[in-house]
Design a protein around this nucleic acid. Sequence first.
DNA 1: AAGTGGTCTAGACCACAAA
DNA 2: TTGTGGTCTAGACCACTTG
Lengths: 229, 229
Amino acid sequence: MQGMMGWQDVRDEALRRIRARAWPPGERIPDEADLAAELGCARATVNRALRDLAETGLLERRRKGGTCVALNPVRKATFEIPVIRLAIETAGHRPGYRLLSDGLALPPDAIAADFAIGAPAPLRHVLALHLADDRPYCLEDRWLSPDSAPPSVSFATLSANEWLVQNIAFSGGTLAFRAAPADAEQARSLECAPGDPLLVLERMTQASGAPITRVNLYHAPGHRLETTL
Amino acid sequence: MQGMMGWQDVRDEALRRIRARAWPPGERIPDEADLAAELGCARATVNRALRDLAETGLLERRRKGGTCVALNPVRKATFEIPVIRLAIETAGHRPGYRLLSDGLALPPDAIAADFAIGAPAPLRHVLALHLADDRPYCLEDRWLSPDSAPPSVSFATLSANEWLVQNIAFSGGTLAFRAAPADAEQARSLECAPGDPLLVLERMTQASGAPITRVNLYHAPGHRLETTL
DNA sequence: AAGTGGTCTAGACCACAAA
DNA sequence: TTGTGGTCTAGACCACTTG
C-alpha cells in the first residue's frame, strides 16, 4: 500500500501528468476504471478528481468519448461580488453611504429593453454614492422594477444594494464590465474630472425570470478589481 | 416512491426552501442524514447537493457546526478567459494579428516588482495588436521571463498569448480589471483618441511559483466583457 | 451495439469544531 | 466528548454518443 489516495491526491497526480506532457494536450487519457485500478482506489474517487479538473477547463469529458486533455485550456476566473459596504470594509476602509436622489423616471431605451417593457413606463430610479474613508468609492445608478421594492422602502440610510440582497430571492442575472468616461454629473459625485475613465460594472438581476433591478456601478478612477486564478 | 431524487433535484428543493424563507438567512438547516431520510435518498446525494450550494456561496457548512443559510450571499461571477483569437471567432468576427515590436527592454518598476527582480535587468517585451474584421480589437503589451520563451521563438505570426497557452505548464496567477485612458501610442494602435477610456485586463502568470509572464490587454473603446450569474 | 462517464446506494471511518 | 460534514468503497444501473 502506497498510502491512502484521496481524490485530491488523484487530482494532483493527474495534474502532474498533464504538466509533464505524459498526457499531451488533445490526447485521450485512460478511463476511470483503469486509473482506479492503477492508483488503487475506487472509481468514484477518480471520478471526483477528474470532474474537478474538467470544471476548471483542463480536461474535456464526454460519455463514450472518454476524457481528453483540453487543447485550449480555457481559464476560468472567479470574482466574488459582495455587498459594496462589505467590500469596502474588507479593504480596510470605513464605509459611508449617501443617497443622492430617489424617484420615478422614464428609463433610457437601453434600460427599458432590459426590463422588457412594451410601452414606456416610469421606473424607480435611485442614485447613491458609496464612500470609503469619506472619499468617493463608487456611484450606484439603479433602476428598480415596481414589483421588487415597495415605494415605502427608503434607501436613505440602507443602500438598495444591501436591501435587495437581504429581501429579494435572487435567481439569476448577468454581469458585465466596461470602461466609460465620466460625465459631468458622475465627475461631480466621484470628485474627478469629466472624461476620466471609470470602471463600470453593469448588473442585471432577475428573480423567477422577471427582471428585478438593473444597476450600473461607476467606480472611482484608479479602482482595480482583482482576483486569483 | 415519489420518483427518483437526483442530486440536482435535492439542490433545487433546497433552493426552493431558501427562497421561500422556509430556511431563513442565518438559520441552521437539518443535517444531511435527516434530509436524506426525509427526501428518500442516500446521504451522499444530499451531500453532493448541499456542497454545490455551498460552492456558490448560498450555504455555509462547518463540521459539527452544521449547515447554515448564508447571511449575505456572496455572488460568485465566473469569466471564461479564452485565447484571444478564439474569443474573436466566437463573437463571429474574423481574427487578425499584427506584431508591433519585440525586443529586450528594462521593465518599469511596477512590472519588475511582479517579477521579483532585485537588480534591474532587461526582459523580453512584446507589443502586438489583435484585430477583429480588420478593426483593432485589443492591444497586447507583454513582458516575458527569460525562462519562459527562448529568444528563438518568434511571435510574428503566432501570438505570444497562443504560444504560451500551448507550451507552458501554467500553475497560477492573478487577474485584474481596471479602466485607463489611452496614451498616444495606444490610441494610434487602437485607432481611437488619446484619453479615450480603455478596459484593461492585467494578467500575471506563474508556473511552479516562478513568474512567467505579465501582460496588459488594452481593449478598444466600447468593449464589454460579459458573463452570467 | 458497446464503451464511457454520470450518478445512486448503503455502509463505514475519519477530521474537525463546538458544547 | 460528541455531533456534523468530508470522504472512501464496492457495486450497480443508467444516459449519452460514438462507431
